[in-house]
Simulated assay, not measured.
Amino acid sequence: MPTTMQAAPHTLTETPRDAATVIVLRDSSEGLQTLLLRRHAKMANMGGVYVFPGGKLERSDSDASATALLDQPPAQLQAQLGEAGLDAAMAAGLHIAALREALEECGLLLAEPHGREARLDAERARAMLDEGQGFAQVVAQLGLRLATRQLAPWSRWITPMAPALATRRFDTRFFVAQAPQAQQARHDDHETTDSLWIAPRQALQRYRDGAIELAPPQIMSLAQLARHASVASAMAAARAQRPPTILPESFEENGVRVICYPGDPMHPVHQRAMDGPTRLAQQGRRFLPPQGFDALFL
């Protein structure tokens, strides 16, 4: 029977909103682990899905009061992201958004003492946010400096016009960071209802078996992380590359929805952006490589 392909209809025309995500990593006796948070089941966007901590860029992330707390100049952060047309202020704001979301969503404070009165107190910092204080205000009041050197740009994902799970479009910069050893990550019981430290391959196995829900960017990011045995390996790989930009395309093949990535014959960008399969096919509620689960790691 001949194969029939057709492009999926473009259902969303809104401009993607800038966002930042932090892939928090740690070493364990089982090897590399990453932190996943389960979004509240009643959330309009990806309810019940396990995600990395993150959220949309806020105007305050680019305020002078926030950029004054950086450990690196905005121009350096701009160079690290390597995006044409991205100005230094926006680059700084995206890094600050990543650090803010790490504190808001999982209680991790990626900062360093700066001055005699400095207090690196993640629990107090999160409580101050809950009391209504702004992120920059909290960091300044505790005498800290934002540790952007602990972040390494990993990838850039732009929600496609016909998204797989989301109801809104985002232009999200993914960063990797090592979890501070003296701090304990925990979900906020508001936007997120569960937190899970897990090896990347194990997370994908649980997704395959229906135990957890994941979105395609998390699937592909976990597949990339599964290639690393330690935090040091993943961080070194991130710092050695220019973060790839990934705008998925979707189409139907013999009635099956397929999402493809740069390097796939059906994608307009011919150069690969990442290792592994160049497409995922919808199988019931799951998106998996047409060649089978193990193709995620080839």
Rank of each mutant, 00 (worst) to 15 (best):
D121H: 02
E14R: 14
Q137N: 10
A75W: 08
M46L: 09
A127H: 11
A229M: 05
V176T: 14
L109N: 05
S230W: 02
S250M: 12
E83G: 01
L70W: 06
G255Y: 03
L103Q: 05
Q282Y: 06
A88C: 03
Q80R: 15
L280F: 11
R26W: 01
M235K: 07
L103Y: 03
Q183W: 03
P53D: 10
Y207N: 05
T11R: 13
G276E: 10
A295N: 08
L120H: 00
E30Q: 15
V269L: 08
G132V: 00
Q224W: 12
V139R: 11
A295R: 12
E253N: 06
L120Y: 00
L35P: 00
A140Y: 02
G292L: 02
R173P: 00
L225T: 04
G31C: 03
M128E: 15
R119N: 03
M43N: 14
D294A: 11
Q183S: 04
G210M: 07
L70Y: 07
R285P: 09
A75Y: 11
R26I: 00
L103S: 09
P262M: 06
G115E: 12
Q205F: 00
G115W: 05
A97N: 14
R186C: 09
A238E: 02
L77Q: 01
P9S: 14
L146Q: 08
G31E: 12
Q76N: 12
A152K: 03
P2F: 04
A226L: 08
A273S: 15
D294C: 07
D194N: 07
A97T: 14
G132F: 00
P268R: 10
V49P: 00
Q6W: 11
L225R: 06
F174P: 09
A232I: 00
T245L: 12
A236N: 03
M235A: 01
L109F: 05
A44H: 11
P113N: 04
P248E: 09
R169D: 13
L296I: 05
R168I: 15
G284T: 03
